[in-house]
């Protein structure tokens, strides 16, 4: 009986003594009617969210094969609460984009993202989804972050299942550390063209010439 605080919330770097004290086991007799536990509401909500992320698989290429391997019995995505693949975006929490996205799919993936209810997250799996990868050509989107916000990028071509699991654990950490009071986390911000900081896309193209960057690359032709 007594006040229990989850050990992961204790800041062990700055308060080692206090953390050590809080790591003590609290004995609790299940038969007694006196036990009670208190915690922060958003800790509890985040704990639930992080451990029941329903993925929306958006598999377009070989990364989707690795994703299937991750979901199958050997790597067993179900261990992390991702038991249920959601093939409808309306019942999904995390969009896993596995593979290259051609421009023809750009409005589709944007629509799928818009159809997903809040809270929602996105994992960009593999080099192609993250940056266009080797497909630096006329047909392929140079990174899905030019269309939708991305929480975790998993590098690799394709990433091994361990890599994807690591990315999923990172996303779970992110979910667990969200604060409900932080409105910026869930608000979708459109770029404001009237802001002084706003740079129009064609200006970005012009500025990045001739060096290019990961998103706006230099022209290869006259």
């Amino acid at each position: 009986m007594g006040l229990s605080r989850h050990p992961s919330l204790a800041d062990t770097q700055t308060l080692p003594a206090r953390a050590t004290a809080e790591r003590q086991v609290v004995s609790y007799d299940p038969k007694s009617q006196e036990g009670w536990v208190t915690t922060r509401l958003d800790f509890l909500v985040n704990w639930g969210r992080a451990n029941s992320l329903w993925p929306m698989p958006f598999g377009t290429a070989c990364c989707a094969i690795e994703f299937m391997a991750t979901a199958a019995s050997h790597y067993d995505l179900a261990r992390f609460g991702m038991e249920r693949m959601s093939f409808s975006p309306r019942q999904a929490d995390v969009l896993i984009c596995a593979g290259r996205v051609p421009f023809k799919l750009a409005p589709i993936i944007r629509r799928i993202w818009q159809q997903m209810p809040q809270p929602k997250w996105c994992i960009s799996m593999g080099a192609c989804a993250s940056s266009g990868g080797m497909f630096d050509n006329y047909a392929v989107v140079q990174g899905i972050d030019t269309i939708i916000p991305v929480d975790v990028y998993v590098p690799g071509c394709p990433p091994r299942p361990e890599g994807l699991l690591y990315g999923i654990r990172m996303l779970q950490e992110k979910v667990k550390n969200e604060r409900g009071a932080d409105k910026r986390v869930r608000d979708e911000m459109e770029p404001d063209p009237n802001s002084k900081l706003y740079i129009p896309p064609d200006m970005i193209d012009e500025l990045s010439e001739p060096f290019g960057n990961s998103v706006h690359q230099t022209r290869s032709a006259p």
């Binding site: 630096d136 050509n137 896309p201 706006h216």
Partner: peptide, 10 residues
């Protein structure tokens, strides 16, 4: 051209 005629943003 390999990367198309328009800029990436366009």
């Amino acid at each position: 051209p390999l990367r198309g005629r328009f800029s990436r943003s366009e």
